[in-house]
Amino acid sequence: MNTASTLNFRIATKEDLKEIIKMMADDPLGSQREVVSEIISEKYMSAFEKIQADPNQELTVAEMNGVLVATFQLTFIQYLNFQGGVRAQIEAVRTNSNYRSRGIGTKVFEYAINRAKAKGCHLIQLTTDKARPDALRFYEKLGFKAAHEGMKLKL
C-alpha cells in the first residue's frame, strides 16, 4: 500500500527539532555527525532560529497521521548568472527509517520541485555523498543528472 499520498507538508517548528535530528542521525554517515539527546543543544537551536529567520530558507517536514516521516531543507539562491536567476538547493533529505520504501521520498521531491518552481527557480540542485550509492540511484531515477563535478573543502 502506498501511504505517501496522505503526506502533509509544513514548515518545521521548534517542537519538530528532536525528530528532525533523529532522522538526520539515522544512517551510517549521519550517526557520525549528529548528536541525539533528550536536550537539544544550543548549536541546533541557534541554527534552527537562523534558518527560520531567513526568507530564503525553508526547513520542511512531512507528516503522516501525525508522525514526522520526512524532512528536508530548501535554500533559494539568488545570483547573477542566467540573467539574475534563482536556484534551489535541497539538503538534509531524510525519511524516517520506519517509513522507507513507501514512496515518501518521491513525494518529498515532487513537493520540493513544486516549491522551487513557485519561487521562480530555474533549477534545483543537490549534492550527495559518494558513500550513498542508493541515494545517487534514487536521485537519477527522479531525473537529476550529474552535470558538474562537485568539490568541497573542509574548514
Rank of each mutant, 00 (worst) to 15 (best):
M1V: 12
M1D: 10
N2F: 00
N2C: 02
N2Y: 02
N2K: 03
A4W: 01
A4D: 01
T6V: 12
T6L: 11
N8S: 15
F9K: 06
R10K: 10
I11L: 10
I11N: 09
T13Q: 09
T13D: 06
T13A: 06
K14C: 04
K14P: 03
E15V: 10
L17K: 12
K18C: 12
I21C: 02
I21P: 00
K22F: 07
K22Y: 06
K22I: 08
M23N: 08
D26E: 11
D27I: 05
D27G: 14
P28H: 12
P28T: 15
L29H: 14
L29V: 15
R33L: 15
E34W: 15
E34C: 12
E34F: 15
V35P: 10
V36E: 05
S37P: 05
S37D: 12
E38V: 12
E38P: 05
I40D: 11
I40R: 09
E42R: 15
E42V: 08
E42N: 15
K43S: 14
Y44M: 04
Y44G: 04
M45W: 03
S46I: 11
A47V: 12
A47S: 09
A47K: 09
E49S: 13
I51D: 02
I51E: 02
A53C: 11
Q57W: 08
Q57G: 08
E58H: 11
A62E: 07
M64E: 02
M64N: 00
N65D: 03
G66P: 03
V67Y: 06
L68W: 00
V69I: 00
V69H: 02
F72V: 01
F72K: 01
F72W: 09
T75M: 05
Q78P: 09
Y79T: 15
L80M: 15
N81G: 13
Q83A: 14
Q83R: 13
G85H: 01
G85M: 09
R87D: 07
A88E: 01
A88D: 03
Q89N: 04
E91L: 03
E91N: 03
A92I: 04
A92D: 12
S97H: 13
S97A: 14
N98S: 07
Y99L: 04
Y99T: 00
S101L: 10
G103N: 06
I104T: 02
G105F: 02
K107Q: 10
V108H: 01
V108W: 03
F109N: 01
F109Q: 01
E110T: 10
Y111G: 00
Y111Q: 00
I113K: 06
N114G: 09
N114H: 13
N114M: 11
R115A: 00
R115K: 05
K119Q: 09
K119T: 04
K119D: 00
G120C: 11
C121H: 01
L123S: 00
Q125S: 02
Q125N: 02
L126T: 08
T127M: 05
T127L: 07
R132Y: 10
P133I: 12
R137S: 14
R137W: 10
F138S: 13
Y139F: 08
Y139R: 03
E140V: 04
E140G: 04
K141Q: 14
K141M: 14
L142E: 06
G143K: 05
F144N: 06
K145E: 15
A147N: 12
H148G: 09
H148K: 14
E149N: 12
G150T: 13
M151G: 07
K152Y: 11
K152N: 09
L153C: 15
K154Q: 10
L155V: 15
L155D: 13
